[in-house]
Design a protein around this nucleic acid. Sequence first.
DNA 1: CCACCATTAGGACAGGCGTCCCAAAACTCA
DNA 2: TGAGTTTTGGGACGCCTGTCCTAATGGTGG
Lengths: 195, 195
Amino acid sequence: MDAQSTRDRIVEAADWLFYRRGFDHTSFADIADTVGISRGNFYYHFKTKDAILAAVIDLRMTNTRVMLRRWEGDGQGPKDRITCFIQILISNQVEIVRYGCPIGGLVSELAKLDHTAQDQATAIFTLFRHWLRAQFAQMGRAGDADTLAMHLLARSQGVATLASAFHDAEFIQAEVGHMCDWVQALEPPTNRNSR
Amino acid sequence: MDAQSTRDRIVEAADWLFYRRGFDHTSFADIADTVGISRGNFYYHFKTKDAILAAVIDLRMTNTRVMLRRWEGDGQGPKDRITCFIQILISNQVEIVRYGCPIGGLVSELAKLDHTAQDQATAIFTLFRHWLRAQFAQMGRAGDADTLAMHLLARSQGVATLASAFHDAEFIQAEVGHMCDWVQALEPPTNRNSR
DNA sequence: CCACCATTAGGACAGGCGTCCCAAAACTCA
DNA sequence: TGAGTTTTGGGACGCCTGTCCTAATGGTGG
C-alpha cells in the first residue's frame, strides 16, 4: 500500500528529472517511465507541462519553508542558523557536483525559455533571501541585512555552479569553510555603528 | 565586399542565440532566420548541430584568449588586470541581468544534457581560471593562487546568476565593488603594493 | 563561349514532442 | 449486485525537430 497518490508520484518524479535533465529536456515520456504509468494517464492529473512545473515549484517552496522553519526550531543563534544554510552545500554536495544548484538551474533555464513561471521559480530564491535577511537583522545588521543576504546567496550559487563545472567536491568544502568563517567574523550590533 | 563569410555569420548568430535561448532550445530554423539563409543551406556548412556548438565554443575560446591577452598588454600590475576581469560584469551588465553568464549557462545546460562537449565548454572556464591563477601568483600568492582564482570565479558566477534571477543591475555594481576591494586588500609578496 | 566547382534554396524524411480523446478497468456506495 | 464515478492505458493528432538529398544558381577560369 503506497501512501502516495499518483499525482504526488508524478510531481516527485518531475522534480527529480527537472533537476537532473532540465525542464525543457524532460519529456512526458520520461516522467511516465519514471513513475511507471502510461503517458495517456498523464492528462488526467495535469493538463499541461506547465501545470507540472507549477506543482514542482510549489513542492520546492513547501520543502524550503519546512527546512527554514526547522533551522529556526533548533534554538540557536542567528549565526548558527546561517551556518545551517551554508552547510546544505555539504549535505547535497554529491548531487551539486553533478547537477548544480536546483534552484539556480531552474531559474536560469526558465529565463532563457522566457517562461511565464520564472517569477514563481525566483520566489524560491526570495524565500532564502528573506530568511537570511531576517537572520542578519537579528545579528544587529538590520541596516545591510539584505545586502548580506544577497551576498551569501550569490556566493553559494557560484560555488554550486563552479563545483559542478569542474566536478570538484573539495572546492565546495573549502568555500563552505570560508563562508562559515565570514559569518562568524561579522560584527554583532553592540559597539559603534554609523548613525 | 562582405568581410564575413556565411559560415562566420552562422557561428555568430548561433553564439548569440545559444546565449539568449540556450543550446537545446535554439533550433536550426532560429539560426537560419537570424542569418537570413535557408535551412537547407545549413547542411553544407555544418553537418550536425553539435558541429555548430563546437564552432561556437571555439569562437568563445578565441575571443576569451584575445581579451585576456589585451588585459596583459595594458602594462599594469596583476591587481589591475584582475580588476579588469571583475569589471566585465559591469561592461556586460545589461545582458547579464537578462541572460546570466554565457559560460556558466552553457556549461550548466550541457551538463544536464549530458552532452559530449561539456568538457570543451568548461575549458573556457579553465582559461579564466589559469589566467587568474597566474595573476595571483604574480602578486606573490603562488601558494594559494588557484584557490583564489576559483574563489573569484565562483563569486563572479554567483553574482551573474543572482543578478539575472532578480533582474538587479545594482546588485552587480555593489558586488563588483566588494570584489575590487577584496583584490586591493590582498597582501602582496614582500613589501607594499604599487600605484 | 563552355565546363566546373562552390554555394544555395527548397523540401522530404523519420522521429519525438505536447496535447487530447476515448474505451476499458477499478473503485465506491446505495 | 448494479449504477455511477474515478482512474487508467493505448493510441491519434498536428507540429516541430535534426538530418539529409537534389536540383538550381552563381561566379571563375580555360
